[in-house]
Design a binder for these strands. Structure first.
Lengths: 191, 191
DNA sequence: GTAGAGATGGGACAAATGTCCCGTCTCTCG
DNA sequence: CGAGAGACGGGACATTTGTCCCATCTCTAC
């Protein structure tokens, strides 16, 4: 159940995780604290120990849109831009509630992996590409309610623990509409 | 203006392209012919010499949804599933009109790159991940008309040459609605 | 305990988007 | 030239989805 960046995917990140477990220091984030802002390069990489983070971006109206999450046990960082290319992040990474994270510097992990696990980046990028591609196709091919039902079946815990606002935003719909989808579901089940 | 898979991105694929230019054989596809179907592993990899291809998938109603294109000069193949993992494609690759392609086998390219350009996959996967991620964010953050306007400004030729149906499907909206967006645009310009 | 903040479900209405359909236009084929 | 196929723009209407709002509920701070 490892998640690098916000992709809910089954990638073997043990090389990276072991390094963090051995070298990380514990940091506590209050709700709303950010690991990185859009436009900043993310210098840290962590494993979530408690609480959760959301990845967000701003739309043209200046409203926050949730693009992904990192829960307990997940790796949290801006892999795609900061880790790979030393470029500023396109997203914010925000604590959804008080959260503990074991963090190390991106530079240190990069050095370690390059020396000890030279194929890590090839593997991780390829598998994340696979996942990003699947998600891209999902956006095109599936309706919001289809995606909601998949989320519920694959990650039942997620939909229960998170605020409705954030789930709706993640699905690309309004809170009001997610309520409608949920109501239709329970109504259907009651008949 | 290289495109690996349907991602319109500026990746240096010269190593791959040079190999195809030297070893490829020319194949002609009629409109509607497929390079690969969903569920098949794609064994070929090509450079489009004339015409164009569309990447498509089926939604839950069984309707075709366009997820990307490959135009003249672009590489066309199922990189994410077939090339990387030898897994069956999640998409169809269909000739949008009569098209000529210089093709080689995926196996041959893979062997060549592994020997002569050992960093190719790391590079290509990382950059495609970057592009796939950007697109994923776009889906979340931008409205259909915002995406239409970006498409028009970045690829004006594309929107002119393609059937309206296919552009609309690629943008994730109906043909009717794309017409509305276009009309609003010209109306605005006339005032 | 109590007041305030924030999350929640849902009503009423507005806006966005899809579906169906038609007349027109262009192109090909005979 | 004439007929049929297919792409196109857009009207009319239906459906989906968003916005605004409110009453309720829970939790926290004092």
């Amino acid at each position: 159940m490892a998640r690098l960046n916000e992709f809910l995917t089954e990638i073997d990140l043990s090389a990276m995780k072991d390094y963090i477990a051995d070298n990380g220091i514990l940091k506590v984030y209050a709700k709303g604290d950010m690991i990185v802002r859009e436009g900043q390069v993310c210098r840290y990489l962590g494993i979530v120990k408690s609480g959760y983070f959301k990845y967000t971006a701003l739309n043209s109206n200046g409203n926050e849109v949730v693009t992904g999450f990192a829960f307990s046990g997940d790796i949290v960082t801006d892999y795609v831009r900061s880790f790979l290319f030393d470029q500023p992040a396109m997203v914010y990474i925000v604590a959804g509630c008080e959260a503990e994270v074991l963090i190390v510097s991106v530079d240190a992990v990069r050095r370690h992996l390059k020396e000890r696990h030279p194929h890590f980046v090839t593997e991780a990028s390829s598998r994340l590409l696979h996942e990003a591609y699947r998600r891209y196709l999902d956006c095109h091919v599936k309706s919001p309610s289809e995606r909601y039902h998949e989320l519920v079946t694959h990650n039942p815990d997620v939909t229960k623990k998170l605020p409705v606002n954030e789930v709706a935003s993640y699905l690309g719909i309004s809170r009001r509409h997610l309520n409608r989808i949920r109501k239709a579901e329970t109504d259907g089940r009651l008949q």
